[in-house]
Design a protein around this nucleic acid. Structure first.
Lengths: 159, 159
DNA sequence: CCCATATAGGACTGAAACAGTCCCCTATGT
DNA sequence: ACATAGGGGACTGTTTCAGTCCTATATGGG
């Protein structure tokens, strides 16, 4: 976890680029503009299309465009499009349940879900619009949210 | 990013186990209790010790214990102990600066920092105490924090 | 109707990271 | 001193990742 793969980096760059521009763009053009090797950029865009982050238009004059407006797409969608479901441990996989013999141990692993939720929420709150048009608004939001959490924590365990 | 490595899983399980128990525990005992292969558990514990998450006592009657109280250790520390610094892209690496020729492209990559901060904050708000003693307190905290963010967002771009 | 353009899907490969093991050294309590 | 227990690092087989390439399919325009 937490080390960004190059593919994911590319995906965010490409998606952000699409967010800043209108209309369909050919994979080749996007690759040139973002300085990403063309075949690789193409591969990434295909994954984004499969995941429903972007829509594609085949044939002449075709290309890629965002599936929705930049404000409606969180970076979590982009990341998950490349990496698959966020932060899954074997134990939280539902295919084989109660494989853990030791309850305490399994209880610990169940807590991963809590971590997953926290990360997912943090990522979903950052949209492609935030990435494409860096303003100060969401930085203020983050700062205030952080202070808020700090304050709540400092207040001690709550009833 | 976002796919949990086994080592990291082990680290959280071990750290949580230590949070629930008092005093020093031998790596061997921890391995047995958590069902983690002994040499691997030992390796993970060494990394946690290096990172300052746990302290070690060598020699007979030695073992590992948390370096601080469970409430003071965020899971981000445990994860970073295994994976290294969170979510670093080459571009945000300070060793070679301004290697990006295209400003717009580099601007996008600079935004990764925003993502990193969000993830880090989310992880630091979950402590080993939360993992070891699953209560409702921190769930309330998360819920309130989420609502707060939602409310701020709904209020629109701020001045 | 035909052709140039552009994506869809998947096979393939070399490189890098990961999981796991093992060995030798140092520290410490009895 | 001796048994116990961690520190550090070397080593290896496996898996994943990054990147490329090829063939098939869809589409707009002359």
């Amino acid at each position: 976890m937490l080390r960004i793969s190059k593919m994911t980096d590319y995906a965010v760059v490409l998606a952000t680029h699409l967010a800043a521009a209108e209309g369909p763009h050919a994979a080749r053009d996007l690759a040139v503009q973002t300085q990403i090797p063309e075949p690789t950029a193409s591969k990434v865009l295909k994954k984004l299309a499969r995941a429903g982050v972007v829509v594609s238009q085949r044939g002449a004059k075709g290309g890629y465009a965002l599936a929705r407006s930049p404000e409606q797409i969180g970076v979590n969608e982009v990341i998950e499009a490349i990496e698959g479901p966020i932060a899954v441990t074997e134990c939280s996989d539902e295919t084989t349940d109660s494989l853990c013999e030791y309850e305490t141990n399994c209880g610990v692993r169940a807590n991963w879900q809590r971590i997953n939720v926290a990360v997912q929420r943090a990522l979903s709150e950052i949209t492609l619009a935030d990435m494409a048009f860096p303003g100060t608004a969401e930085l203020v939001l983050i700062a205030r949210s952080s202070q808020e959490a700090e304050r709540l924590r400092a207040a001690g365990p709550m009833e």
